[in-house]
Simulated assay, not measured.
Amino acid sequence: MNTAYAEVIGDPIAQSKSPAIHGFWLEKLGLDGSYGRSLVAPADLPDYLARVRDQENWRGCNVTMPHKQAIMPLLDAIDPLAARIGAVNTVVRGDDGRLTGYNTDAGGFLEPLAARLAEKHYFRMARVLGTGGAARAIVAALSDRGCVIVLAGRDPAKARALLDELAKGTDHHAIALDHFADPTDFAFDDREDCLDLIVNASPLGMAGQPELAFDFSHAPPGSVVYDIVTHPLDTPFLQRARAAGFATIDGLAMLIGQAAEAFERFFGVAPPREHDAELRARLTA
């Protein structure tokens, strides 16, 4: 019997943490499977898919840049959430060789917020910073959970168009990113049954990128500050949030969450999440 195999594809791909995450879970479960990485240039994407769909032991792949949109017309089916977001980050091969695209970024983003989202709130608001591909999944996910969204981007018109396309309801707001750079004396609602999120969905703060300019006077009391950047993991944005007294969530939480959903689709079993602390230690060593 052929060993089940999955992988991550992209260009570049050497930086991906996916092999370490999936390999850790396969090791803990003692599964006869493996997970690797493949450098696939944009021009080679059709040939890559034609080759793997005939390999019975190939269970699927995670998809990173620059293929998340380009791969969609090459697949046999697209999950409705992925179609709505307009991006695929997971491809699964069926027993008949059909390839189906999914987006696990939305679920991965929500996972560390699950306990809070299970509670009832008087009001939910999310300030989402950035209008790129990750923001699309995050806006869709949060609007589905009843959040009013303030989407900030360098181009407010792009932010408005993204909200109109993806966010349920009509009470969302688009704003310029630099609005949050200067202090405010706005009197926020401080009732304990409100849920406020501040989410960096942009590359700002990533190694080699400028720091995110955000003044925490714009964060209501009790806000949860979430940064999806993974390199560095403890961004200056998160450091300043903690110094200001806010709870924080780092990008590794989303990365592990989206990988968990993909792992179950590839290998047919849930990953052993009781070992998350050990996985984090391995990934950050």
Rank of each mutant, 00 (worst) to 15 (best):
C194S: 08
M1T: 14
K120F: 01
A243G: 03
D47A: 15
P183F: 05
G132S: 11
G108F: 00
S34W: 00
D11T: 12
T284Q: 14
R53G: 01
I138K: 06
E211K: 03
G97P: 09
P221G: 01
D250L: 10
A277F: 03
R84W: 00
G153W: 04
N62L: 04
R160T: 12
A270I: 02
L75G: 10
R98W: 01
I13C: 10
L204D: 11
D144N: 14
T230R: 09
I256W: 03
V63Q: 08
L75T: 11
I21D: 00
G222E: 14
G30P: 08
I71N: 07
F263Y: 12
R59M: 09
V225T: 07
A207G: 05
N2C: 00
V8Q: 00
Q15C: 04
M125K: 15
A152K: 09
Q55M: 13
A176N: 13
F246M: 11
L238R: 04
G169F: 10
M65F: 13
F180Y: 15
L110H: 05
S18K: 07
S38M: 11
M65D: 01
P156S: 11
R136M: 02
A201R: 01
L279T: 11
A159H: 04
P272T: 07
H231G: 04
S16C: 12
P156D: 09
G101C: 07
M65V: 15
A50P: 00
E56S: 15
A260H: 03
E56M: 07
G251Q: 13
L99S: 09
R154Y: 04
P203W: 08
D215T: 10
R191W: 07
G30N: 08
A243F: 04
G86Q: 12
A115P: 03
T100S: 15
R98K: 14
L26Y: 00
I249K: 12
D76M: 08
L113W: 13
A137C: 06
P236H: 12
S143H: 08
G101Q: 11
I228P: 10
A277S: 12
M65P: 02
T3S: 13
Q258P: 08
A14P: 01
L110V: 13
A277G: 03
R116A: 15
E119Y: 05
A82H: 11
V150I: 14
N89Y: 02
D79H: 05
P203D: 05
L197I: 09
P271C: 01
E264P: 02
Y35L: 02
D79T: 02
G251M: 07
T64K: 11
R273C: 00
A181S: 15
D190M: 00
V52G: 04
E192I: 09
Y5C: 01
E7L: 12
I198F: 05
G10S: 06
M72H: 06
Q69E: 15
A135T: 04
Q258A: 05
M254I: 04
A161L: 11
T248W: 03
